[in-house]
Simulated scan of single mutants.
Amino acid sequence: MATRQTHQHTDTAPVAFLIGMRFNKWWRPDAWLPAFLAMPRMLKELSRDRDSGLLGYRLLFGELGVTVVQYWSDLEHLYGFAGDPDRTHRPAWTHFFTVTKRVPGAVGIWHETYEVDRAESIYVDMPATGLGTAVGLQPVGSATHSARQRVARAQRP
């Protein structure tokens, strides 16, 4: 029998934050390399700080760029990090705008933020991945056998 697990639900809605960059002018590393190198520094800083609110992340590499899927404990921690002038994000963001004025269109940046107040997951013969890594796993039981049951369980009053 396959081992089936689902993610654990928390009292508060975790946040999924997707951020990516696209190398529009790959031949201009002077324009995109600083932003590219800033992300590992930010992730390292956040991972070392247990109170940062970052629960986990995953790097995805594509043909024209990179995407980071991050899981946060809540919006306040995410926004707090983004706006803190003493953390790595603000100086990197300021530098990004300086470079993009000098070499317009060389690199694209995007992000999306989702409060995950209702989610369903299944992990079959898999270690924790994605949301399961961020909030932990629990065995699927009779009340969480189907995707419909798992989504219903996720509804908050």
Rank of each mutant, 00 (worst) to 15 (best):
M1H: 10
M1W: 06
T3N: 15
R4S: 10
R4H: 11
R4E: 10
T6F: 04
H9F: 06
T10I: 07
D11E: 14
D11F: 07
D11L: 13
D11P: 05
P14L: 09
F17K: 00
G20A: 12
M21Q: 05
M21Y: 02
N24G: 05
N24H: 15
N24T: 11
W26C: 03
R28S: 14
P29W: 01
D30M: 03
D30Y: 05
A31K: 00
A31G: 05
L37D: 14
L37A: 14
A38L: 03
M39Q: 09
M39N: 04
R41I: 14
M42C: 14
M42H: 11
K44Q: 12
K44R: 11
S47I: 01
S47V: 04
D49Y: 07
D51L: 11
S52M: 02
G53K: 05
L54Q: 01
L55R: 04
Y57H: 12
F61N: 08
G62V: 02
E63M: 14
L64G: 10
G65P: 00
V66L: 15
V66Y: 06
V68I: 11
V68A: 03
V69R: 05
Q70T: 00
Q70G: 00
Y71E: 00
S73M: 10
D74Q: 11
L75F: 13
L75K: 09
L75R: 12
E76A: 15
E76I: 07
L78E: 00
Y79R: 15
Y79W: 12
G80D: 09
F81C: 01
A82E: 14
A82L: 12
G83T: 13
D84Q: 08
P85N: 10
P85Q: 09
D86N: 13
D86A: 15
H89C: 06
R90Q: 13
P91W: 09
P91V: 08
P91G: 10
H95P: 02
K101F: 07
K101N: 13
R102F: 14
R102D: 10
R102N: 10
R102W: 08
R102E: 13
V103K: 09
V103E: 13
P104L: 08
G108E: 01
I109T: 05
H111P: 01
H111T: 06
H111G: 03
E112L: 11
T113N: 03
Y114K: 11
Y114A: 08
E115G: 08
E115I: 15
E115A: 14
V116L: 15
V116N: 09
D117M: 14
E120H: 13
E120I: 04
Y123M: 04
V124R: 11
M126S: 13
P127R: 09
T129R: 12
T129M: 10
L131M: 12
G132E: 09
G132S: 02
T133P: 01
T133G: 11
A134L: 01
V135P: 00
V135I: 13
G136F: 03
G136H: 11
P139N: 13
P139G: 05
V140R: 02
V140T: 06
V140K: 02
G141Y: 04
S142A: 13
A143F: 03
T144Y: 04
T144M: 02
S146H: 12
A147K: 07
Q149K: 07
R150Q: 06
R150S: 05
V151T: 10
A154Y: 00
A154C: 04
Q155K: 14
Q155P: 01
